[in-house]
């Protein structure tokens, strides 16, 4: 398969699979609460339902409010094509650099926060304010945990990193594990999971991500929800394929890619179960305790980095 073909495949893969992983997390959580829970395909139905619904847009909304969902969704699928999902090939993509990826994510967060404030809704305002607080503090941990990998691989290209880590000896793995822990904390913060945010809450005053998209309805809400699912899968895939890059296809032949897809789905399933376990055994942290956790992520990355350099 040509490089373009592979890139195109990745472009479709994330939006096609991401709702499934949200459904799996919900299902596992339901089981852990002695509930049956909805089918794992429920998020697909929800998105489909929202696409069929009418929209209500506030009279005070500006172009930011109406364009943000498209931008955020586009960024989320573009990023899906820019990270190693199935193979460590594709090194030539423009977006494959870790700094580009992190800051394109920041760009979509920025627009999300702007959209939250756009209608002047009080909930959107504090949702955005909280999101920016958390995002600013997460950045350090996220960048430095990935930098630890970059220094190991002597490259900031994510595909090169994935290739280099897979050929690392087990002895050299200690700093990678530290960086991974730092990355997981950043992942939970970025994707609005416990202990930072509660994606299942109905309490408007406690929301972060949900508060920002409270004014959306219909198709735009569908895009926002879908983009959030994409982002969740994106981060899980980054964690799976940068820190544990085994199972990546060595060539771009269809059988190798299918095998690689199987490995990816398996790794993401394990991650989903872990997230669900975490969310079922933990209470959400008090808002002012979150910075402590994010600093811990930053410091763990620094330690990992100092062990490598």
């Amino acid at each position: 398969m040509s490089l373009f073909g592979l890139w195109f495949l990745q472009l479709l893969l994330v939006p096609a699979l991401s709702p499934l992983f949200i459904g799996i997390v919900r299902r596992v959580k339901a089981r852990l609460q002695n509930r049956v829970g909805a089918r794992v395909t429920q998020p697909y139905r929800d998105i489909l339902k929202l696409f069929r619904k009418d929209e209500v847009v506030s009279a005070d909304a500006s172009w930011i409010f109406s364009s943000a969902p498209y931008l955020i969704f586009a960024v989320s699928i573009l990023l899906g094509a820019s990270i190693p999902l199935l193979s460590a090939h594709l090194t030539a993509t423009v977006l494959g650099d870790l700094l580009t990826v992190v800051y394109v994510i920041a760009l979509s967060t920025f627009f999300l926060a702007l959209a939250g404030m756009d209608t002047g809704n009080a909930f959107g305002g504090f949702g955005s304010s909280r999101e920016m607080t958390v995002a600013a503090l997460t950045e350090g941990g996220l960048i430095f945990s990935l930098l630890a990998l970059a220094f190991t691989a002597h490259s900031s290209n994510l595909f090169v990193i994935a290739g280099a880590i897979s050929s690392l000896s087990l002895l050299a793995f200690t700093p990678i594990i530290l960086a991974f822990v730092a990355f997981v904390i950043a992942l939970l913060a970025e994707t609005g999971r416990f202990p930072f945010d509660n994606p299942a809450t109905h309490l408007e005053l406690t929301m972060i991500h949900e508060a920002m998209i409270l004014e959306y309805s219909g198709k735009k809400l569908a895009l926002m929800e879908w983009a959030a699912a994409n982002k969740f899968m994106l981060f899980l895939a980054l964690g799976a394929n940068l820190f544990f890059p085994w199972g990546l296809a060595a060539s771009a032949s269809p059988p190798a890619l299918i095998l690689a897809l199987g490995a990816l789905v398996f790794k993401l399933l394990v991650f989903c179960v872990l997230v669900a376990l975490l969310e079922s055994s933990l209470a959400k942290f008090r808002f002012f305790r979150l910075p402590d956790l994010l600093f811990m992520s930053f410091i763990l990355s620094l330690i990992a980095l100092s062990l490598i350099v």
Binding site: A200, E279, A283
Partner: peptide
């Protein structure tokens, strides 16, 4: 009370 802290285990047990 447990559910509102996000402790979903406690929430569902209370309801049960």
């Amino acid at each position: 009370i447990m559910l509102d802290t996000g402790y979903s285990f406690g929430g569902s047990q209370g309801a049960r």
